[in-house]
Design a protein around this nucleic acid. Structure first.
Length: 736
RNA sequence: GCGCGGUUAGCUCAGCUGGUAGAGCAUCACAUUGACAUUGUGGGGGUCACAGGUUCAAGUCCUGUAUCGCGCACCA
């Protein structure tokens, strides 16, 4: 009797499944259960109908999974989206809806190409100079191997999505539909190829949309130069070679003696030049001296002025970020070096009026490499977004799409209201090729899906294929209707518009806005009813996770240490929609304990109900009735929270109910009744315990699918009467 | 510069339509071989950023200030 285990064994009831005799071990159950779920086919709504789990006329519920980038491991943000979407999916499936959670994987154009470039760099190679076809093939292999790895991780997190439908963003169906949209935009006059200022990253050698740039605050020198009779201010002396137009406001009395179009001679960087005076209202009289010279090739504002007055313009900086021959002695220099040298030269010529040292401004940089964006003029394909954006705004006004939270609704509206045309050309190989021909003579662009255009429709010149690819967001913006098989697939008819789009708040404009615009444009309907946005997952102190800081929490490691259920609870309890959350492993550990608590509660209930055979109506005591009423109240409260997407409250509620009420109060109070001699009271209490227990397991399931299903699979038949063999498709509890 | 959000216990955060503050972790004390030490019971700890206002009553509504963060824009 000295050995603790033998002592414990003496209390073991033979009817309790052996699995309950030791603490809950997630590793032992999770893989097996996921395989069983997948095997059952219940992730697929069609199978649910075939097998009678879902009524054929059941209300549909659909979520399109934001396809994770197939270029690496899942991070904590992925774990959060899986958790939230799986909660919604499992909840609605249990409520008997016809549920489709549609998975996918994203080739993630620019993102993946930059990941792959780093890999090339490590191997001492570079994408420049590589045969584009070879490079494409290499990235494809890399992506596909990551894709299957990533899908395995989604399974590990418990995602109950329908793998039989899984789609990859480069699959034929995707390309075909995207081409269809491209052609339709052309036909509708919403597409044009034009020379405009693009955000050029000299490092990545591609243009970027406004969204793909970010601004950083920087303190630079601000120079005042003598420019003929004027003093001009600039932070970028290196662009000033081509500046032969000097601009001021027409109402500026300081310069009233100068007239629009007047020509002046002056001494400039590389000798005497002729400059023309331009009066334009866009000039801010308060800024600097109220006079500026313009560099239309390298500034959007200047470009607009040049267009208004029909001025010519010239490239000063090449695509690699070096000065062109126009700069003469500075030709071939990088910007930073040239800036210094030019200032020196202007100083020796006595043209520097003054230098302000602390000029702070925000500078656009590439969101990937944080190098300065060099505005450049380049021919690109543009989508006229105004009509599309207006339709998206209408959908928000009519509440056909509802954004959670209001804050994000405002951000989205603001963005949609102030939108500029969308540059969809990218100079990278990893993406969907743009099906178009470009005239070598006049640069006219022609949409050509069938590879049939051989001469320019405008000037009869020779044509070449456009070598650019689409902005990833142009194709992923069509994802909801592509996945569902627009226009003819039954899925499209059954599930579009989808019920919920759940995604990260930081891609609201990148993705959600584009999906609305393109979805409405192509199908006539907004792609989703509700948009649930989650924030960033940060470390436990609220710091952004990054490899360099070393504070990255891998969801897979957490899962292996604490169990998937614990991770899911850690991610969802107290995490308000739309706001960032902090993930603390200690918090996850608390829910690991909770999973074990559920396990132990199960052991007790199983033991307490061994003799329970549900026959006849129990004669409930006042205390029994109170417990059941309370259970109903909890059930309706949790159901309401679930319906309102308040998972942070629903999860906390069920947690406290199970631990503090069911375990700490109800079970404790039941012990004396169960060991007493009153058979009716005992039977009634067994009935009550069974109700509370089954109901709790069901309400816990969307949050903690593994431990609850593990328990369910070991429930004896006397507790499971009238219930499905699999908790995943059991019926969500109803109020009595 | 314009717009938006946060500021609540030592830490990280909840708190619905206004009614004298909650959770997890941490901490302290006690208990414990019949479901569970991945435990139980109990406790300490907050003038809910600050200043005004509305109200019988304000983390909860209004105004302003400070501070942190986000979105948009940007001027050469």
């Amino acid at each position: 009797m000295s050995d603790e285990t033998t002592q414990k064994d003496t209390f073991v009831k033979p009817n309790i499944p052996e699995v309950f005799l030791k603490p809950y071990d997630p590793k032992e159950h999770e893989g097996v259960l996921y395989a069983a779920w997948e095997e059952s086919g219940f992730f697929n709504p069609d199978v649910c109908i075939e097998k009678g789990v879902t009524a054929p006329d059941a209300e549909p519920f659909s979520i399109i999974m934001p396809p994770p980038n197939a270029n690496g491991s899942l991070h904590a943000g992925h774990a959060l989206f899986v958790t939230l979407e799986d909660i919604m999916t499992r909840f609605e499936r249990m409520r008997g809806k016809r549920v489709l959670w549609y998975p996918g994987a994203d080739h993630a154009g620019f993102e993946t190409q930059t990941v792959y470039e780093k890999k090339l760099q490590k191997e001492g190679r570079s994408r420049f100079g590589m045969d584009p076809k070879v490079l494409y093939k290499e990235i494809l292999d890399f992506t596909l191997s990551n894709k299957s790895f990533m899908e395995g991780q989604l399974r590990q997190l418990g995602a109950s999505c329908d793998w039989s439908r899984a789609l990859f963003t480069l699959d034929d169906r995707v390309v075909k539909t995207v081409y269809g949209t491209f052609e339709q935009l052309d036909r509708d006059g919403l597409l044009y190829r034009g020379a405009r200022t693009v955000n050029w990253c000299s490092h990545h050698q591609t243009s970027l949309s406004n969204l793909e740039t970010t601004y950083i605050d920087r303190t630079d020198k601000f120079y005042y130069f003598q420019y003929g009779p004027f003093v001009i201010g600039t932070a970028r002396p290196e662009t000033k070679f081509g500046d032969k137009f000097v601009v001021m406001h027409p109402d500026d009395t300081r310069y009233k003696e100068y007239t629009h179009g007047q020509v002046i001679e002056l001494e400039w960087i590389n000798g005497p030049i002729t400059a023309t005076i331009i009066k334009d209202e866009s000039v801010d009289m308060e800024f600097g001296t109220g006079v500026m010279t313009i560099t239309p090739w390298h500034s959007n504002v200047d470009f607009e002025i040049a267009k208004r007055h029909n001025l010519d313009y010239e490239q000063i900086i090449d695509w690699q970020g070096k000065l062109l021959p126009i700069s003469q002695e500075f030709s071939g220099m990088r910007i930073a070096e040239a800036r210094e040298k030019i200032v020196e030269k202007l100083a020796t010529k006595g043209l520097i009026v003054k230098v302000e040292e602390n000029y702070t401004h925000s500078v656009p940089v590439c969101y990937k490499c944080e190098r300065d964006i060099e505005p450049q003029i380049r021919n690109q394909w543009y989508v006229k977004v105004r009509p599309l954006a207006d339709k998206a705004l209408e959908a928000l006004d009519s509440k056909d799409t509802v954004i959670l939270t209001e804050q994000h609704d405002k951000i989205l509206r603001h963005w949609l209201t102030n939108l500029e045309d969308w540059n969809i050309s990218r100079q990278i190989v990893w993406g969907i090729p743009i099906p178009a021909k470009i005239c070598t003579a006049c640069e006219h662009g022609m949409v050509d899906l069938t590879d049939s255009v051989t001469t320019c429709t405008k000037c009869d010149g020779a044509v070449v294929a456009d070598i650019d690819t689409f902005d990833t967001w142009f194709s992923s913006g069509q994802w909801p209707f592509i996945t569902l098989g627009y226009p003819d697939s039954p899925d499209f008819k059954n599930f579009y518009p989808t019920s919920v789009m759940e995604t990260a708040a930081d891609i609201l404009q990148f993705w959600v806005a584009r999906m609305m615009m393109l979805g409405i444009y192509r199908t006539g309907k907004t792609p989703f009813k509700h948009v649930y946005l989650h924030g960033l997952v940060r470390d436990k102190h609220g710091k952004k996770m990054s490899k360099s800081k070393g504070n990255v929490i891998s969801p897979i490691e957490i899962t292996e240490k604490y169990g998937t259920d614990a991770l899911r609870m850690g991610l969802v309890v107290g995490n308000t929609p739309g706001t960032d959350m902090n993930l603390d492993p200690d918090k996850v550990n608390a829910y690991k304990k909770f999973a074990n608590k559920i396990w132990n509660i199960s052991r007790f209930i199983l033991d307490a109900t061994i003799t329970f055979t549900p026959t006849g109506t129990p004669s409930l005591t006042a205390s029994d009735t109170a417990i059941l009423n309370r259970l109903d109240a909890i059930t309706s409260e949790i159901t309401m929270y679930m319906e309102k997407f308040q998972f942070h409250l629903a999860s906390e509620k069920i947690y406290h109910y199970v631990w503090n009420e069911l375990a700490d109060t109800i079970i404790e109070e039941s012990k004396s009744i169960l060991s007493g001699n009153d058979a009716d009271a005992k039977y009634a209490r067994q009935y009550v315990l069974r109700e509370c227990f089954i109901t709790s397991l069901k309400m816990l399931h969307p949050f903690m699918p593994f431990v609850t299903e593990a328990v369910w699979q070991h429930l004896p038949q006397n507790l499971k009467i009238g219930e499905h063999e699999m908790l995943m498709v059991a019926k969500w509890p109803k109020i009595r």
